[in-house]
Design a protein around this nucleic acid. Structure first.
Lengths: 234, 234
DNA sequence: CGCACACTTGAACCCCCTCAACCCAAGTGG
DNA sequence: CCACTTGGGTTGAGGGGGTTCAAGTGTGCG
């Protein structure tokens, strides 16, 4: 009998760097029992802003974008969530943002009452969630600085450097970055237009600061310089 | 013997709508013993970005601004914290932002270890902090939408409407808003310049949507219209 | 009064956006 | 196999919203 059928958590790719790491191996069965795995196709929306917030999610594969919309269609991407990322923290009864898979992805779904039980039984989990929330808050403040005060060049440089830092720690032949998102999604994340993102990429490339082997990949050639631009120097 | 000397918390203006409300009256003495009250003059900085994060703060009077700086002096205000607001949540060992009193203010200071004790003894407090963090996260996402995708008019309208909604619930003779911050601070909060903020105020005034009895006060004359602009309609 | 500081207003400029054309790769179907 | 479509990306030209620079207007306070 395949063990992983009954305990998907122990073999989960996100196990270790997700909030789940707050739970001991021996209690993993309990966790697996409360979670429901869901596969998402590229482009699939699984959280809609304003909908009643009945569930929490943990991304275990792929990448999802979190975003908010204005009535006329203007979109602000508030973040990209990869494997290990926890979603849906909210006091309110409705989601404050939408979430869409930007590539083939997988999420782990917890119902609100079930998570509440878990939190009660595993105090370490609550502490871990608080830590997570704090980290997101810090990231959000950094993004506000970017959106409110940085130039287009600085925004794109910040994005690339941040991707490098928070990128998957393993598999880094040189300074290559995977970009599962489109230029449009990067633009909506940085408060720019597609054209400006594309032009800035092209300029960095012409200046030999980056290389663009494909649309979904960027190689950092001059990291110190990019970091400097990102920080607002020069 | 004056009771409030030994129990400043029970008479605190922020008692009730701060995180402290998670603690029963009978345990307030304990809270008071761990807190240190500090008065701040206008313009006084009490948290410096990058400094080691040894303390947490609770604003109990006045208003403070939270902000981040770029090396060349560009400033992004990430929020204004009034009475009841909790500051300093961070996993990291250093503060991710600076904080400065923009008017005569008072804060309640907790050392990190002491707060940790409190959290241990009052689980409700930890839950309350998590709620607080979630609310701030939602606000931060809303601000990202503003900074990344809204026009100057929409930003200023959003600011005014938000001030009205989160304003001190009592003492609201009509739809008057107190603005303890300068135009420059509003500009740094909205990702604009002083001039644009001033011009937008003037336009709203000329269009009879607001009145400006003084530099530190605005009266909303057409709230539905302002709300519409803030939401991105028209 | 007169200085300081915050705010307002005007004019010119510029960075980024808008609009438009084009490129390229991957389907798709006759 | 090739014509056609579709989606994402690039590049160019022109325009506009907000910034920059600069001058002027209160207003509080010594």
């Amino acid at each position: 009998m395949p063990q992983h059928e009954h305990d998907p958590c122990s073999s989960c790719a996100a196990r270790g760097y997700s909030v789940c790491s707050a739970i001991d191996d021996k209690d993993l069965g309990r966790l697996a029992a409360t979670a429901v795995v869901r596969d998402l196709a590229k482009g699939e929306t699984f959280i809609e802003e304003g909908d009643s917030a009945s569930d929490f999610f943990n991304v275990t594969r792929g990448t999802v974008k979190l975003y908010k919309l204005l009535p006329d269609g203007r979109q602000q991407v508030t973040g990209f969530a990869g494997a290990g990322h926890f979603l849906g923290l909210a006091v309110s009864n409705t989601y404050a943002f939408s979430a869409e898979a930007i590539e083939q992805s997988r999420v782990c779904r917890f119902s609100r009452p079930k998570l509440r039980e878990l939190l009660h039984d595993f105090p370490a989990l609550e502490e871990r969630l608080l830590q997570t929330a704090c980290n997101e808050l810090v990231a959000a403040q950094e993004q506000m600085l970017l959106l409110g005060r940085k130039t287009a060049r600085e925004r794109v440089a910040s994005f690339l450097v941040a991707r490098l830092e928070t990128g998957i720690p393993c598999v880094n032949p040189s300074d290559a970055i995977a970009l599962p998102m489109t230029r449009g999604e990067i633009a909506d994340y940085l408060g720019l237009t597609i054209e400006t993102v594309s032009r800035t990429f092209s300029r960095f490339k012409a200046e030999k600061r980056i290389a663009i082997p494909s649309n979904t990949e960027v190689v950092i050639l001059d990291r110190p310089w990019l970091s400097g631009i990102a920080a607002g120097l020069q």
